[in-house]
Computed example of a mutant assay.
Amino acid sequence: MVVSKTKYEASEAEIKELFSLHKVGNVTEIATLGDGEFNAAYKVTCDDGVSYALKIAPKEGSKVLSYEINMMESEVFWYTQMHEKTDIICPKVYAFDFSKKVIKSNCFIMEMMEGEPLWAMNFSEKEYENVQRQKIGMLSKIHRITNDRFGYMQMGLMDSWYEALKYMAFSLVNDCKELGKDTPDGEKFLSLIDKYEKLLREVPCRMVNFDLWDSNVLYNAGIGKICWIDPERGFWGDPVADFITLGPGQKSPLSDKQKELDIYNGMAKEKIRLTKETEIRYALAVCYLALIEEVEKYVRYEEDDPTYIRNTVDARDMYDMAFGIL
């Protein structure tokens, strides 16, 4: 079991008061929900028999990374974007509360979705292929959602992907330094962003999820469809970045994902071709994920925690693969 330093532990009284305040219902049952390592989540059932998911941002005073500050407001925004602009199945948000008056942290109440996370399913080969097509189809839909400024909304948007990615990376390097740690790989990544400035300034601005792991997708066996949850780590940026979670995963180059690219291009309005330029854009996105994993371990876990060790190994493998391309 992963022990996180950031999770808010809400009391029964707090949850009941929150649901009453927002006129959602009278709470009869509360249970912890999910295996997330950052936010707290609860399944809350009311006296009408309806269950809801309550999600709570990290507790007051928790050490979080720069881009994670006020990230929950971004999550509510991304759910709204998907409901308004796509037919992607994802939870409806019934109420959000960023006042910190009842629960002393940002929180929101959303629809409790049916299904199990993909990692928990025992799919046949055919079922697995169908689910992967659905995942890729969801990405093709969010990539139709455009903006004219880049980056995380909670950090301030920039005029180009070059400026946004550099600021996102610089903020993590700075977070690392403030924690008393050095990140030579992070510094190297910053120099590579400058090296490819011209290319990055030409990148289109799209909704990017950047977190489409199997733990963030539920499978509803009754209807044979998947549901998208936890989009809080999304940003406005390079759609190529979303291929990190597909196929053989984050430690493999884009060239190992031709099958996924072909499926995507069969669904997408704007195709993503495997070129030297897209390989570079993808490798820079992998570096960014590696930097996140490298730095977040210092604020989330103790050094002997298996997840701390996992992050260390994953980041090293991602850097090595990406630096080899760049």
Rank of each mutant, 00 (worst) to 15 (best):
V2G: 06
E14R: 09
F19R: 05
H22C: 05
N26F: 03
T28M: 08
D35P: 00
N39V: 06
C46A: 15
S51Q: 03
I56S: 13
E60Q: 13
G61H: 05
K63S: 05
S66C: 15
I69R: 15
M71W: 00
M72H: 03
V76K: 08
Y79L: 11
K85A: 09
I89N: 14
C90F: 04
C90D: 02
K92H: 06
K92L: 15
S105K: 06
F108P: 11
I109E: 13
I109T: 14
M110C: 15
M113V: 08
M113D: 00
M121E: 09
N122Y: 06
N122L: 10
K126W: 03
K126M: 07
G137I: 03
G137Q: 13
M138Q: 11
L139F: 02
R144F: 00
M155L: 14
L157E: 11
D159F: 00
Y162M: 00
L165S: 10
Y167R: 12
M168E: 03
A169Q: 00
F170V: 01
S171C: 13
D175T: 07
C176N: 11
L179P: 10
L179K: 11
D182C: 05
T183I: 04
P184M: 05
F189A: 03
F189G: 02
S191K: 14
I193F: 07
D194N: 10
Y196P: 10
E197P: 00
L199P: 12
L200P: 14
C205K: 06
V208G: 04
N209Q: 12
D211L: 10
D214G: 01
S215W: 03
G224S: 08
K225E: 15
I226Q: 03
W228N: 08
W228I: 10
W228M: 15
D230K: 02
E232L: 08
E232M: 09
D238S: 10
D242C: 01
D242N: 01
G247C: 11
Q250G: 11
K251H: 05
K251L: 06
S252K: 02
S252D: 06
S255M: 12
T275A: 02
T275K: 08
T278G: 14
T278N: 15
Y282R: 07
C287A: 05
Y288P: 02
I292P: 06
V295I: 11
K297T: 05
Y298V: 08
E302R: 06
T307M: 13
T307P: 01
T307A: 13
V313H: 05
R316Y: 05
M318V: 01
M321T: 07
